[in-house]
Nucleic acid binder design. Sequence first.
DNA 1: TATTGTTATACTCTATAACTATA
DNA 2: TATAGTTATAGAGTATAACAATA
Lengths: 170, 170
Amino acid sequence: MADREQCVELAHQLRATFVVSREISRGMPPQTPLTAVMVLGVLDRHGELRMSRLAELLDVDMSVTSRHVAFGVEHGWIDRAPDPLDRRSRLLRLTERGAATLRASSDRAAAVVADHLADWPDADVARLSELLARLRVSFGDCRTAAHRAGTADRATAGAHRHSIPPAHQG
Amino acid sequence: MADREQCVELAHQLRATFVVSREISRGMPPQTPLTAVMVLGVLDRHGELRMSRLAELLDVDMSVTSRHVAFGVEHGWIDRAPDPLDRRSRLLRLTERGAATLRASSDRAAAVVADHLADWPDADVARLSELLARLRVSFGDCRTAAHRAGTADRATAGAHRHSIPPAHQG
DNA sequence: TATTGTTATACTCTATAACTATA
DNA sequence: TATAGTTATAGAGTATAACAATA
């Protein structure tokens, strides 16, 4: 367990990493908002998902997810079909075209990263990716754990350790 | 130098870390927007700054910075005095009250981090902070290098290695 | 009656462009 | 003429609340 000083430092660094994300998003192709790409990325990694689960994974309200998905559907990136088991729900899948868009976007982002990290050793890049992935799992817990009581997919299965309720602000 | 695959992965992780930042900002005290705290944080770390330099460090347009600073001044967190050497410029400093606000905010953020990272070993937290700091330096370069030709402060001094122009989108 | 998802509205953050004032 | 900073406006992203359809 890290001490207070370390936590303050990490919190600061995370806040400040905003800058890096913005820089990367500036290099992205036009007409493909960052959020749209994030939706595609999640669908690519998790496969078929329902709206509610997607909203959890994106950590945004379902109303927001709904509009991002609508955008993706309009552009032919996402297939949105009614769930035969529960006709209130809709199942989302990445289309071929969506996968291509995601790939193009990932290439651009990777190019920006490669540009700036030209002098980084391989091992550090890999380590940072790994730590960020773990960080996300540790944080993802809190939001999903409160809503769900047993359902799990291959991305977050077995990652539940805490039981802190989601802290939405008013 | 990392290969394409690694860069794609890191870019994805950075995009996805948005989620973590949002979760932290949800736990923040009300009436202190994330951006305001970021301004205070930069002033705390860099000391007295001009608007333009602050905008660089925050990686946002000066017009944006201007309003965030105005907000901070209104709340008594920032002291904004005319620069005696160039009366177009204004010098910004963190006030006592601003420092207190920053401290309170950092405490909250640290608490959220500590909550979620309870089972992380010390070393990993420290390593992640360090890598993120380095990442920011590597990215910070591109924006500041184009604007400035010699001025440096203690935060970014000696960090210039590439000469990639800032890639602002249209 | 509860839940899934959509839509309307308001708030935050951002960039572009037009402006003021100094240099 | 160029630069530092401000303000007006428009666009992207988000949350809350009210709603429709289904369970």
